[in-house]
Design a protein around this nucleic acid. Structure first.
Length: 592
RNA sequence: GAAACGGUAGCUCAACUGGAUAGAGCAUCGGUCUUCUAAACCGAGGGUUGAGGGUUCAAGUCCCUCUCGUUUCACCA
């Protein structure tokens, strides 16, 4: 067996310099536990033992535990007995203690030394703490937000936008290279309708004024109007189709209108993206892909995959137990599917991605299965790089949010409301705060974002304003506040360079906190593997909670020899909280 | 009718590969600011994890049946 350095003394750790700065202490400590056990279990390899080692839920049961159930059969003994026999053969060197509790052998790590190592790692390189290399710099395209042109962004868009942004940031943390794409819904019959509506009613003074003050909602009103009146005037629908056909055939006026609608929409979207601090690498939407549709159609034809059915051309997916994919409608026009196939081909060619993620609502699950299978049928071996990151819908009073029904809550309004509320809180709690406006934005918007990300993404959420703008309990501001307190102490503590501080002096009361700090990287990995930002959000909440508890029970600014070590701990917590919040695209004000 | 996902405290949600007494927040009741920011901390009450069966030393977690809810099932995206 290759000897691995596992029993390095703390003094060595403290002064050995750069090479260990990203060392994951707890992984190594787990190996230490496995090695200790292997002396008593000669029939098992260290790896086999390591796999069985777990982390007790209750920290009173130690830092690592080894359950002995699985040995009961082969040894023909009760697990409790096995545990007490094994522990006799285990060296306690390097541990605070090793004890038997029923069928478990519980290991308590050397708190002072391991704790010092963890703090050292964080303080040496806070920017990179928690990073790992799952991605090897591979390219990942991520398609998220993707609003429709000429419709305002509602609360529903927050989900795709923030889940997408957070996943992108998390994947970057584990060394993927992200390409963020906002696949705008800027094509289709709906634009024909919009143009037809504008041509019919757009000259009125009311509309002209509206287009100046609130263009996107004015357009929306035109769109809603033509849709509602189309029931009585079927010719409106025909006019819409006609205008879309003009657009498809390159009619000059249609294109001029299209560009104009798109520009005013993008300008408005950008305001929201700026508030949320979300930046895309590409805004190539459906219109862009619409120009690339010949290739997938030709490929499907060449492979004999296109079949006539009910006057349309489809790809039959019966053998995958899926409904057919409608490629060409009975009236000869294409669908979003054709554009998505073109998009997939383009992205693969353009970015050479290792994964291609689509952050889209759960209601499109079947559709993405179809898309993957169609690519598989076409013989593209990268079909399974396409992943649908689905999320639960946002409802309003138990009803689906729908632009057409008008039961939509404006995202921008909610963000502004939340910022206003945060501003009021600041005026009340910290009236002397200098950059109150900036902090109000960070807190208000942070609360909205955090609320959207803290639960498992597949859960459906019912929109309730009072829940979204809550600043107490399990919220973004709770985490921000914990860090602001830490920063406040650090400002008063006077030390920012901890390189000469003896970190072993931090005290046993800090162990719970330090042990949790060491788990950050694992949490980030789990979030990345499951494409689940809520793992990071829960980690941040838990860390904030542990720090708040520590804060309440330990005086950090107490003039004693341990104070520098406690400040170092405070600094480490602040770093990790800021990092976790950043992964969620939530800002961390130093003061609030 | 079929499929996918879900049902955990009054409400909103946790529980990493099956593990030790199923945990938080909100709400309710009570306690803590002349000392590091009370957006906080401490305590109390609140549970047959939808129902039933099975596998296992061990099931909220895996399998089966039933039930309720949401979503989807080719010319919207």
């Amino acid at each position: 067996m290759v000897p691995r350095e596992i029993l390095v003394s703390s003094k060595c750790l403290l002064f050995t310099g750069d090479f260990l700065y990203r060392r994951n202490y707890f992984m190594d400590e787990k190996l230490q536990v496995a090695n200790a056990l292997s002396a008593a279990l000669p029939d098992l390899t260290v790896n086999e033992i390591e796999e069985k080692i777990e982390r007790p839920k209750d920290s009173n049961n130690g830092d690592y535990a080894f359950p002995t159930f699985f040995l009961a059969k082969s040894l023909h003994k009760a697990p409790q007995m096995i545990a007490s026999e094994l522990v006799e053969k285990i060296s306690q060197d390097g541990f605070d203690k090793v004890v038997v509790v029923g069928p478990y052998i519980n290991f308590f790590l050397d708190k002072a030394n391991v704790g010092a190592g963890v703090l050292q790692t964080i303080l040496n390189d806070p920017e990179h703490y928690g990073e790992s290399d799952l991605g090897h710099k591979a390219n990942v395209t991520i398609d998220y937000s993707s609003p429709n042109i000429a419709k305002p962004m509602g609360m529903g868009h927050l989900r795709s936008t923030m889940i997408g942004e957070a996943i992108a940031r998390i994947l970057e943390k584990v060394n993927y290279n992200l390409i963020r794409v906002d696949y705008l819904g800027d094509w289709g019959t709906q634009f024909g309708k919009m143009m037809a509506a504008y041509k019919m009613w757009g000259d009125s003074q009311e509309v002209q004024d509206g287009l100046k003050s609130d263009p996107i909602n004015t357009l929306l009103q035109l769109y809603v109007r033509i849709n509602t009146e189309a029931d009585e005037h079927p010719e409106y629908t025909d006019a819409g189709r006609e205008w879309f056909a003009k657009l498809e055939h390159g009619d000059e006026e249609a294109w001029r209108l299209w560009h104009w609608f798109r520009a005013i929409s993008l300008e408005r979207f950008q305001r929201v993206y700026d508030m949320l601090d979300v930046k895309f690498d590409s805004f190539n939407g459906e219109a862009f892909s619409a120009q690339k549709m010949e290739e997938p159609i030709q490929l499907l034809r060449d492979k004999g995959l296109l079949k006539k059915s009910r006057g349309a051309e489809i790809v039959d997916l019966d053998k995958f137990n899926l409904p057919p994919l409608l490629i060409i409608k009975s009236n000869g026009t294409t669908t979003y599917i054709t554009r998505d196939l073109a998009t997939a081909l383009f992205r693969k060619r353009m970015y050479g991605h290792a994964k291609s993620l689509y952050v889209v609502g759960a209601e499109q699950e079947v559709y993405f299965k179809q898309l993957r299978m169609a690519l598989k049928e076409l013989g593209f071996n990268w079909w399974n790089q396409i992943k649908h990151i689905s999320f639960g819908l946002m409802n309003l009073n138990g009803q689906k949010m729908s632009t057409r029904k008008g039961n939509v809550v404006s995202l921008e309004d909610v963000l502004n409301d939340s910022v206003d509320l945060a501003r009021k809180q600041i005026a009340e709690k910290n009236p002397d705060l200098k950059n109150a406006d900036e902090v109000a934005k960070q807190v208000g918007i942070g609360a909205v974002i955090f609320h959207d990300l803290k639960n498992y993404r597949r859960n459906a959420v019912n929109f309730k304003l009072e829940d979204v703008v809550k600043f107490e309990g399990e919220t973004g501001p709770y985490v921000q506040y914990a860090r602001a307190r830490a920063e406040s102490i650090l400002r008063k503590g006077g030390i920012r360079d901890f390189s000469n501080v003896d970190l072993t002096q931090v005290g046993d009361g800090a162990w719970e906190l330090i042990s949790f700090l060491s788990q950050y990287g694992e949490a980030v990995k789990r979030a990345a593997l499951n494409y689940d930002p809520s793992v990071v959000a829960k980690y941040a909440l838990e860390l904030a909670k542990k720090f708040n508890q520590y804060y309440a029970h330990n005086r950090i600014l107490n003039d004693d020899p341990q104070q520098p070590a406690r400040l170092a701990l405070t600094q480490a917590v602040s770093h990790v909280l800021k990092s976790a919040l950043a992964l969620l695209d939530v800002k961390a004000p130093d003061e609030m």
